[in-house]
Amino acid sequence: MSDDGRIALSLTLNGRALDVETPACATLLDLLRDRLGLTGVKKGCDMGACGACTVLMGGRRIKSCLALAAACDGGAITTIEGIGTLDDLHPLQAAFIRHDALQCGYCTPGQILSGIALLAETPKDLAAIREGMSGNLCRCGAYPNIVAAIAEVAGL
């Protein structure tokens, strides 16, 4: 920790090594959005309920609003900015478009990252997808299409 209370971190962010300083009280969400400009990470409830802030840490989905940035030192973080490109979408991004799995789009980055992590858990049926996605809320109510998009990529 430096004299002014800031803490030096080394992260791997979307595949790139990065050194950054953070206040002790900052969440990973605030660090990513406000300091590093990765605004694909959304702040919804900021209390761990809505899932809009979902990112991958070491390949596992977490809620970045409940993670203290300082505690993520050394971690490998993936945000939506690290998933696909306009010319080369991730299969789940393409499936979201095909299935119209969004309306306003605010929850979508979190839905996609959560869905990618869920796909790695190989859900066995639609019920497992619904259960596995319960940590991501969609105020527009696109749930049936979100489940359909994930199911397609899962081969269900």
Partner: peptide
């Protein structure tokens, strides 16, 4: 318990 994200943390 909770959700997939929370259980990972």
């Amino acid at each position: 318990t909770a959700s997939g994200q929370v259980r990972n943390m």
